[in-house]
């Protein structure tokens, strides 16, 4: 739904092979090497984490690794900036609550 199929200026986007990954226990597909946040967006995922104090949702904001709003738990590691971390096959991505993987 969000992937651009036809673009008037950019003829194609460099993408790796299609791989499977896991988001909160669900299997999803994305292209190897693209930012995790892009693969999530393509699957309709908007909320990356909830803040520690007020449990407010956060998602992609700057998309260049500067603001840290998009951090998630990736393969067990917390606070991974998903907008600049490349997707790999079999990655386990979890919504981050504060710094935990559950509320």
């Amino acid at each position: 739904m969000y992937r651009i199929k036809e673009h008037p200026i950019l003829k194609s986007f460099q993408k790796g092979r299609l791989v499977k990954f896991e988001f909160d226990g669900n299997v999803m597909e994305g292209f190897e090497g693209e930012p995790i946040s892009v693969a999530l967006k393509a699957n309709g995922v908007m909320v990356h984490r909830y803040t520690k104090k007020h449990s407010q949702p956060r998602g992609v904001f700057c998309s260049i690794g500067r603001c840290t709003d998009c951090v998630m738990i990736v393969d067990g590691q917390t606070n991974v900036r998903t907008c600049i971390t490349p997707l790999a096959e079999g990655m386990k991505i979890e919504t981050q609550y504060g710094v935990l993987n559950k509320r």
Partner: peptide, 16 residues
């Protein structure tokens, strides 16, 4: 999102 984020998503990664 920032306008720069929009550009990064659509013009680099091909996602709206």
């Amino acid at each position: 999102i920032g306008a720069g984020a929009a550009q990064t998503m659509m013009n680099i990664h091909g996602i709206k």
